[in-house]
Structures are given as C-alpha cells and as structure tokens.
C-alpha cells in the first residue's frame, strides 16, 4: 500500500488544485466530484470526506449526491468501462443480447470489474445515438453502433491490446 499513498498524495494535490482553480463553492459540488472521479477512478469515503471538508459542507451531503447520480461510483470499476445502452430504441434492436454476450465473454457480473481489473460492463440508459441502435460506449468516447453479439469478442480484444 506504500506506493498507493505516494500516488494518493499526488492525486489529492491534483484535486486540490482543481478545487482552487474554480474557486469552488458548494454549488459546484457536482463539478468537483466529476473531476475527482476522473482523477481517482472512483469516489472512496476518504475522497468524499476530503471534498466535504474542502467545500465546507457535511460529508453526508456529499455522499447523498454521489449515490444519487448514475455517473458516480463508490467502488472501483474496470479500467475500460463498457457501457451498453438498454434504452428502448436499442432494446428493441436486441441490445440485451449484446449486453449478455459481454458478460459471458468476460465472465463477470454487471458493474463489477474483471479479475485483472481491465474491464467492467454497465447497462446504461439512452446514450442519444438512437439512429445507430444498438449502441455501445467503450471508455468515454469510443462509440460502436449497430452492434451484434458476434461483434463483442473483437471489441474486447481491441481493448486488451491497449493494455499490453
């Protein structure tokens, strides 16, 4: 855990700089949390407490906001997050089968990371690319449209390579 501490300190410093740069007031809590999740990957109790202190609000309020929004996570996710849209337009085009295939291929449960921590699979609401249904979002910006279950292994392979 030693090295985690040192990287941890560095990460907290980065968060601190962000909070100062936007002159954070309590109404900017969500922006701060978004940045914190970007930095840490997820929002641990320590991070939440830190933000509560920095913005001078109760930790319970921070926790309430964190657990309210889908975007925030209090547990680690995979390095590569695979988000399968199960909105109605995707659903009627067979998105559930794509979702199941991802779980099968990776041998994981929804939301939980794979053993190596590389992937996690999430069912999400409409991603707003309905004319390309079914849609899958890998990471933050890689969209895959007109998905079929058979395309799943290829996509997984692509992001395994990135790691090595």
């Amino acid at each position: 855990m030693q090295d985690v501490c040192t990287t941890g300190e560095r990460l907290f410093k980065e968060l601190d700089e962000y909070i100062k740069s936007i002159n954070a007031t309590p109404d900017k809590l969500i922006s701060v949390l978004q940045k914190a999740q970007e930095i840490f990957g997820y929002l641990s109790p320590q991070v939440q407490q830190y933000i509560a202190d920095a913005l001078n609000i109760p930790a319970s309020q921070v926790y309430g906001v964190v657990t309210f929004y889908n975007f925030f996570s209090t547990t680690p996710k995979g390095k590569v997050q695979i988000k399968v849209c199960l909105g109605t337009a995707c659903y009627v085009k067979g998105a559930d089968r794509v979702f199941e295939r991802f779980l099968e291929e990776l041998g994981v449960e929804p939301e939980k990371p794979t053993k190596d921590g590389q992937f996690s699979v999430h069912a999400v609401r409409c991603l707003g690319a309905c004319s390309m249904a079914p849609v899958v979002l890998v990471g933050e910006k890689d969209f895959y449209g007109r998905m079929k279950p058979d395309m799943v292994p290829r996509i997984i392979a692509k992001y395994r390579e990135v790691k090595s």
């Binding site: 949390l33 309210f68 889908n70 975007f71």
Partner: peptide, 26 residues
Amino acid sequence: VRLGAGAYVCGEETALLESIEGKSGR
C-alpha cells in the same frame, strides 16, 4: 455550462435546478 451526472429525473425542471445548485436532483 454545467454538466449533468446521469439522472433522468434531472430533465424535470426543478430537479435540474437542484442539480445546478450542486445537490441531488430531486
């Protein structure tokens, strides 16, 4: 610009206002 954090209910106008204020979007 303020970014949402993933909650359908924030499309409801008063929930959206709560969210801009940095609170849960109820």
